[in-house]
Structures are given as structure tokens and as C-alpha cells.
């Protein structure tokens, strides 16, 4: 059996007096598609943000591809990671945000080519060629010269996905990527993600409230509540036959709120 690509070991994280994560451990296998579901404030987004190094952990350890994310070896001891170490580790990980976070002053093409040119030393021509392939993949090849403000929310999010992919990460984090979209624009983004899951062997972690999509997309579903994994398993088991009472009541509420399962 292969080694896990992400190994989270007893991490904790507080925001002020609020303990979001308390001794959480989990593992992700290479190529696995993982859906993280649960009520707001349950810590699922925090896990993605911690993996992207947008939040620091207060305790515990994380390994990515067998290497410590927040620590490094120095003279036999485990010490906090330097900025250089973090930069190297971040190359393995990409993230797509709920609110897209495109650069409003750059056209679509420049949004995508900026990081590969700056962080990987790619030549402009090569970076643009790769960007056009990615735009083609997300169905926006004709928008290369458009400014973000000229795009719909769904188009913005597809550009954001292409931008993250341009750095060829091994792990992609999707943080409620359809939550800010008008309902009729959700599918165009989900279709891109389906295609991505089918065509690549990237490891994907998805925080979502789209239960139907999580069901089709994920190999494994984790249900979070108050910073803990309450229940995990195959999508069919979690969505059709949840064992835990908290999972059942959460899913009931979600269905009552009109979300598709």
C-alpha cells in the first residue's frame, strides 16, 4: 500500500478563545478525492487554509509527501519551518477560493501566467501556451484578454481554477468554490472539476455544501463537527446510511434547506 500524501497528526488551532481544531488527525492517499462536509465553524475550511499555510497551527504535525510542512530538521531536531522551506512545500499545493481572489488589474491570461513566470522562471511564451491550454480546458479560451470584472462569477471561478493548475500542484484544495455563485452558474464550475478529477491523478480536497456533487465526486467523505471528524466513509454510506446521529441531523437540515443530495 502506498504512503499517504498528506498526514495530519494531532493538530490544534485556536482563534482567540475559540478552539477550532483540537487534536485532529487524518490521512489522504495520493490521487484521492476527498469531500469535507459539516456545519459552519466545524473547522473544515480551516484545515484547507492550514494546508495552504494561510493559517499556522498551534500544535501537532503535518506531513506532505513524507516531508514536514510546518517543521524542518535541523541538527537532528524538529524546528519551525523557515520561509524558504514553506515556499518549497507550497509548490506541491494549490488552492481555489470561495471568492475567486483573481487579480482585478490583470487580464485573464496575466492572472494565470504571473505565478509560473515568477516562481518557476517560465518564459512568457511557454507560460502563455500552458495558460491557453488550461483556459481551453475550462472552456474560456476566448476570454484570455478579458479583465476579471468583465466575467461572470462562474467564469471567474474557472479562471481561478486554471490559475491554480498552472503551477501543476500535486494537491488541489477547493474551498466552497461554488458558494458565492448564482445557482445557474454552479454547474459550469462543477463540470470543470468533474473533468479535472477524471483526467488527472491529482489529490483533491473539497470543502462543499453541494452534497450531490460531493456524492458523485468524492472517493471518501468526512463529516466534521466542532473540529472533529464525526464520521467518514464512502459517499453512499455517509449520504444514504449515516450511522452517527449528528450526521443524520445535519444531512436532514441540508435537505430541508433545499440542497440536492
Amino acid at each position: 500500500m502506498a504512503a499517504p500524501i498528506i498526514k495530519i497528526d494531532a493538530i490544534s488551532k485556536s482563534f482567540g478563545a475559540f478552539k477550532v481544531l483540537d487534536g485532529l488527525s487524518m490521512q489522504v492517499m495520493p490521487g484521492e478525492k476527498l469531500a469535507l462536509i459539516g456545519p459552519s465553524g466545524s473547522g473544515k475550511t480551516t484545515i484547507l487554509r492550514i494546508l495552504m499555510t494561510l493559517e499556522r497551527i498551534d500544535g501537532g504535525h503535518i506531513e506532505v509527501e513524507g516531508e514536514q510542512l510546518y517543521h524542518m530538521q535541523r541538527e537532528g531536531a524538529l524546528v519551525p519551518a523557515s520561509e524558504r522551506h514553506l515556499t518549497r512545500m507550497r509548490q506541491k499545493i494549490g488552492m481555489v477560493f470561495q471568492l475567486f481572489n483573481l487579480f482585478p488589474h490583470k487580464c485573464v491570461l496575466d492572472n494565470i501566467t504571473l505565478a509560473p513566470m515568477l516562481t518557476k522562471g517560465m518564459a512568457r511564451a511557454a507560460a502563455e501556451k500552458r495558460a491557453m491550454e488550461l483556459l481551453d480546458m475550462v472552456g474560456l479560451a476566448d476570454k484570455a484578454k478579458a479583465m476579471p470584472a468583465q466575467l461572470s462569477g462562474g467564469q471567474k471561478q474557472r479562471v481561478a481554477i486554471a490559475r491554480a493548475l498552472a503551477l501543476s500542484p500535486k494537491i488541489m484544495l477547493f474551498d466552497e468554490v461554488t458558494s458565492a455563485l448564482d445557482p445557474e452558474l454552479v454547474d459550469e464550475v462543477l463540470n470543470v472539476m468533474r473533468k479535472l478529477a477524471a483526467e488527472t491523478d491529482m489529490t483533491m480536497l473539497l470543502v462543499t455544501h453541494e452534497m450531490g456533487f460531493a456524492h458523485d465526486f468524492a472517493d471518501r467523505v468526512l463529516f466534521f463537527d466542532r473540529g472533529k471528524i464525526v464520521e467518514e466513509g464512502k459517499p453512499d454510506d455517509i449520504f444514504r446510511h449515516p450511522k452517527q446521529e449528528r450526521t443524520q441531523s445535519f444531512l436532514k437540515k441540508i435537505i430541508a434547506a433545499g440542497h440536492r443530495v
Binding site: 515556499t87 507550497r90 505565478a115 491554480a164
Partner: peptide, 21 residues
């Protein structure tokens, strides 16, 4: 803050993010 976070997620250095974003 979201612009700074996009810079981090794209692995831009502090100065690169400042200069280009």
C-alpha cells in the same frame, strides 16, 4: 486580505506579491 492570500496560494514571495499584485 484575499489578495495577499491569493499571493501566498500562488507561492509568490513577499516582494513579488507586493510588486506585481
Amino acid at each position: 486580505k484575499e489578495q495577499y492570500e491569493a499571493c501566498t496560494a500562488l507561492n509568490l514571495g513577499r516582494w513579488q506579491g507586493m510588486r506585481h499584485v
